Simulated assay, not measured.
Amino acid sequence: MSSDVRFTDFKSDKQPTWCPGCGDFGTMNGMMKALAETGNDPDNTFVVAGIGCSGKIGTYMHSYALHGVHGRALPVGVGVKMANPNLEVMVAGGDGDGFSIGAGHFIHAVRRNVDMSYVVMDNRIYGLTKGQASPTSREDFETSTSPEGPQMAPVNPKALAMAAGATFVAQSFSSDSQRHAELVQEAIEHDGFGFVNVYSPCVTFNDVDTYDYFRDSLVDLDETDHDRHDSDAAMDKIRETETEYMGVLYQDEDSVPYEKRQGIEGSMAEIPDGAPEGAMDLVREFY
């Protein structure tokens, strides 16, 4: 790992096509800053993304990357980490990608507790498909396809993570660049699955959950007496409906990542002694 890497080293030469003002710009910048601050560089970083506006993020970052299919980014990220635990694996997704078709994968990735980070851009809407209600949309959120709102209680990603046995849960806001980068950095440094839900406003299709709304409603947990190591206190904060909190809601200091529990070390790309004749020549040719 390089000690003098800058966050700009993680920028690719592809120009983002997100709408001007999209919260995903700030989310991505914070991810790059966090990777640089933790001593990572593009050569040891693998970014996995799914479908939706967030799915483009691997194209805009300079690292190893895979643009997967809807809801399937997490199992790919887990597979990458298992194949080479030396890589810094970061999975990026959206609220639709992660908490609808990908909800099952989310629960099992949390409980498996692989040493990787998961950054979700939560704009409470399906942006890429032109503004339908998402799993985290408010019950009365009116859209062209749900004129009376979805009429269902929104999914609470942080409560879902805690119920699945999460060892690190944080809430961030894409517009607070410094704080956002710090929270992603903490997720990377955590020994285990680091989940960061990011309020990343959609300026085109969501005129309710706006930058102003989050600025006015968010309270930083560092300015309270919250104990991040108390799971009951974390759930109390998560269940509150009058206040939105930003910061680390819960962290298990005794967390042991899955790969350490299973004794997984080294890259699976290393062919052991005794491989069939000619196997190493084939591998060298392939790589």
Rank of each mutant, 00 (worst) to 15 (best):
M82H: 08
G102V: 04
D140S: 15
G131K: 00
G58S: 13
S146E: 06
C53S: 04
P150L: 04
Q132S: 10
R138H: 15
P20V: 05
G30Q: 06
V110R: 07
F99T: 05
G131E: 12
H108V: 13
Y126A: 03
K56L: 15
F25M: 02
D41M: 00
V120Y: 01
V119P: 09
V78W: 01
S63E: 06
N123W: 06
V80R: 04
P75F: 04
D95R: 01
P85E: 14
V69F: 12
E139V: 10
P135Q: 07
N84T: 11
S146F: 09
G96W: 08
H105G: 04
A109C: 03
G30K: 05
D140H: 13
M61H: 05
I57V: 11
T38N: 13
Q132M: 02
M28S: 06
G30R: 09
V48R: 00
N84E: 08
A83F: 05
E142H: 14
S146N: 12
G52N: 03
E148K: 12
A36Q: 06
T59L: 09
P150A: 05
R112S: 12
S117F: 14
M32Y: 09
V120D: 03
I101L: 09
V91S: 00
D97Y: 06
N86D: 15
T45A: 07
D122P: 08
H70C: 13
G102D: 08
K81Y: 11
A65I: 05
G39D: 04
S63L: 01
N40S: 13
P85Y: 05
R111N: 15
A34E: 11
I101H: 02
S134W: 07
F99N: 10
V76M: 10
M116D: 08
G149Q: 06
N86G: 12
G71Y: 05
T145R: 01
T143D: 07
G94H: 13
V80H: 04
V114A: 15
G39W: 11
C19F: 03
S100M: 06
F46Y: 14
V76N: 01
D122G: 11
R124K: 14
V78G: 05
Y64V: 13
D41E: 01
V119D: 10
H62N: 14
A92N: 07
A34S: 15
V78C: 02
M32K: 10
T136Q: 15
G131S: 00
G58I: 01
S137K: 13
V48A: 12
I51Q: 02
